[in-house]
Amino acid sequence: MSLKISGIVEFIRMHRDEIMKDWIDRFNKADAQSISAESDQIDQAIAAEYVNILIEWSKNKEDEFSGKIHEFSKRIVQLDWPMDKIAQCLHTFEKILFAKLLEKQIPGDPLELLSEIEKVTSPVNREVFLQYTSSYERTINLQKMALQELSAPLIPVFDSITVMPLIGTIDTDRAKRIMENLLKGVVKYRSEVVLIDITGVPVVDTMVAHHIIQAAEAVRLVGAKSLLVGIRPEIAQTIVNLGIDLSQITTKNTLQKGIEAALEMTNRKIVSMGERR
């Protein structure tokens, strides 16, 4: 490690409290002018830990000290700040440190000082951003898995009758998930009739209709019947205008009528028990 880096680390150690105070005041003052809540401002303990790590890591081999940097970075990510806020916070520290070096008239070219400051802070900052990126990717993947699980559920409503409510846009990937869940569910629940409810599908174009026809055909091949329900007037008009042939699929305009039809197909019906007393 060069003398310049060691000198900057020693400067941080000697002026630790002063640098920390200016850093916290500067960042929190700027943050208070934004829409962020006061609880999102930098914490004294977090600031102190960051400064301590900068001082201590220079005395240790980076690979031996990486665990501590890693744990600190995880705590930074848990603050749940956006990336630009984290970057602003860390950049504010570098600006404060640079200003202090100039204020104390530390000899050296300003551009070189900036370069040396970056060498001191970059190992910690790099790990913070790496942890943020990893955390973001994990969150996205978990959300994607959750959405996939909820995107095409097959729900048993009566013995041998199941409903698959579809909500939102249907693309190719989601169509594959629908097909998988549909076939697995038909076998699992021993379905005789499956109602595919498109009430929550905003647009039915040629591709969506093709996926629905494929799903209905797949249901037929495993020994069950399918009904397409929830066809709103505007959807019916679109289907007619596009020339989409749904003649091989039984359709109903509401889920209620679909369930009534499914009960009839399984030799059952809903009967009134008379007036309640």
Rank of each mutant, 00 (worst) to 15 (best):
Y132E: 04
L150V: 12
V201A: 10
A146I: 13
I178K: 08
G185S: 04
I170P: 00
T162M: 04
G200L: 11
E192P: 04
T199L: 10
P123K: 06
V203K: 00
L195K: 00
E192S: 10
V128K: 02
L142P: 02
M207K: 02
T133L: 15
Q148T: 15
K188L: 13
Y136G: 09
P153S: 12
E127V: 14
L221G: 06
V163T: 08
Q131T: 11
E217T: 15
R177N: 14
D173E: 11
V128D: 07
S135V: 10
P123R: 05
D197E: 10
I196D: 02
V203P: 00
A218F: 06
A146Y: 09
A175F: 02
T139R: 12
I198G: 08
S134Y: 11
S151F: 07
T206R: 12
G200T: 06
L130W: 08
L150Y: 08
M164A: 11
I161C: 08
I178E: 06
L195M: 13
L195E: 02
H211T: 07
I167N: 09
I213F: 07
N181E: 07
V219E: 03
Y132N: 11
I161D: 04
I155L: 14
I212A: 01
A175T: 04
A224H: 02
D205W: 04
L142C: 00
A146G: 01
M164D: 12
P202C: 08
D171R: 09
L182W: 00
I140H: 09
G223L: 02
E137K: 14
T172K: 03
P153Q: 07
